[in-house]
Design a binder for these strands. Sequence first.
DNA 1: CTGTTAGCGCTTTCAC
DNA 2: GTGAAAGCGCTAACAG
Lengths: 332, 332
Amino acid sequence: MSTIYEVSKLAGVSLATVSRVINKNAAVSEKTKEKVKIAMEQLGYRPNTIAQSLASNRSNSIGVLVSQLDSPFFGEMMVGIEDEMRKAGKQVLFAAGHNLESMEKESIEFLQSRNCDGLIVHCEQASDEYMHSLTKGKTSVVIVNRKIPMIEDRCVTLDNFKGGYIAAQYAVAQGHTQLAYVSGPHDKKDSLERLQGVKAACKDLGIELEDSHIETGDYSEKSGSDAISAFIEKGYRPSILICANDEMASGAMKRARELEIDIPKELSIIGYDNTSFTKYLHPELTTVENPIGKMGKMAAKLILNLAYDQKNVIHNRFEPEMVIRNSVYRHD
Amino acid sequence: MSTIYEVSKLAGVSLATVSRVINKNAAVSEKTKEKVKIAMEQLGYRPNTIAQSLASNRSNSIGVLVSQLDSPFFGEMMVGIEDEMRKAGKQVLFAAGHNLESMEKESIEFLQSRNCDGLIVHCEQASDEYMHSLTKGKTSVVIVNRKIPMIEDRCVTLDNFKGGYIAAQYAVAQGHTQLAYVSGPHDKKDSLERLQGVKAACKDLGIELEDSHIETGDYSEKSGSDAISAFIEKGYRPSILICANDEMASGAMKRARELEIDIPKELSIIGYDNTSFTKYLHPELTTVENPIGKMGKMAAKLILNLAYDQKNVIHNRFEPEMVIRNSVYRHD
DNA sequence: CTGTTAGCGCTTTCAC
DNA sequence: GTGAAAGCGCTAACAG
């Protein structure tokens, strides 16, 4: 591999001049620029990014922490980020936190040790305080899907309250009055917000949603199935079940099928996230769109602003929308 | 961030000595080693990986090219690789080729420009010749899921012939005689091999599989649906449809449901890959396990051998296995 | 607009 | 077993 030195020799200019045409950050006369370009071409010169990083103290890479690498949800997020960063000529390093506080911290340290210029993190377990302190470090940090007090401008979030609200609203609009809800874990803010949204909508619309009509799951398929069983044991037969994510909706559908409950006629189902696998479900799942791909893109834009002084327009609060498919029956 | 220089000052030794205890590649007396370690501890010293790379001409990172970042299939592969590389303390860069020759090459160049010590690639479009020349470069390359003549030792592959064979064999063992097959595109070797496996099994077992009972798809869900329609138009009603991947199997199931064909009673289905979404299908899909996660791990081990002189035991030819679930009806 | 020069933080001969 | 010193390939003042 040829070096900047060889290019400068061949072009008959100094190292600095070559560096300038590479970085386009200082005026170089058209003539010399041309000479340099020809020399680079001839030698097949490619700048050594490592050396660039060391000298400039910038690695032109950003680190991304997701919970899992093999999930449709994080997949979309990664694609959104990669896309945007690639356009900006920056590299992306992905690491997985596996939903464990220790792994999350370890992965963040790993990314930091790689001299990332910025971090985009989707942390589920690490505390608000930890996140907060992270943003105080010298590398910029953007947080996805979590609103942390004091640093909201670093957070790209979804209005989960509204997500819950519109789901319940839609259910009622379709003539349902016997609602049930499977919530996510109560120690997660997004889960809580969705629940509050559902409750608020019911209240606003004059529909009763007793506490006993709410089950708490853990976002897993199994907890969706379990919820169905739980309602049946309680003797409650809702006409519609709203789930805090698609995974649980899928579990609920499976259980219902085992029990020969017809979906959507006897039991309608609403999911949340609009994960890609919803298309494999039968009937196709009506759900709340979680624009995680777009949020990833926005997080990327934000980090580009923070770490590389770009001036992208930022809006960091996203609104969910209903995705109407076939799992909700209309009662007239 | 403290540097190696500060550590050496504090420990009262030279730079070189500190470097030695970091890299454990030369003898250092217990005493001084201890001193250095204490100094590193006190300063919270972390080696600067960029500087290490520049000086040693090794980046301790490997690049991975997949077709898509947001796919369950590649997700598993990425997890397998990340896992193994992480254990080895190496970094992984992921890039997407999007099934386009231009993007594949561009992404490979991107990874190379990042000074990866090795590359693991899953290329669909680039030619054998290109792949071949790639392995001739100075960075080691491992190829996943494609057997390229002359460099088989660099390839981690699945026995696709056997995959097709056991699928057909299983179908026949379950009492089916009216088989049909939806193949993948004919310009892909793996697709061809699966087809040949199916044909061979039929022949060996004395079952007829006319050419008209074979449809050619493109691995997409839609082409699975289309295949069903095509068979019906031809007036052929198979008792079992073997698909060259799960995606097409899913499409076929959808179409069958629309046509009110009962699965598996009237039509059994076998998929291929055992992708994670198969659990969302109904009935749960009987399919051929494609151990892509394990293959990713193995590719990682191989690249560790090639790029870092590790001595992992390699077996680069994987065997598929049937995963029996509920989409095949047994005819006695 | 262009060249000179001093590092960036580390590894790696080569002596001792 | 340890230290001195020469780079790795590039950027970024600074001077002209």
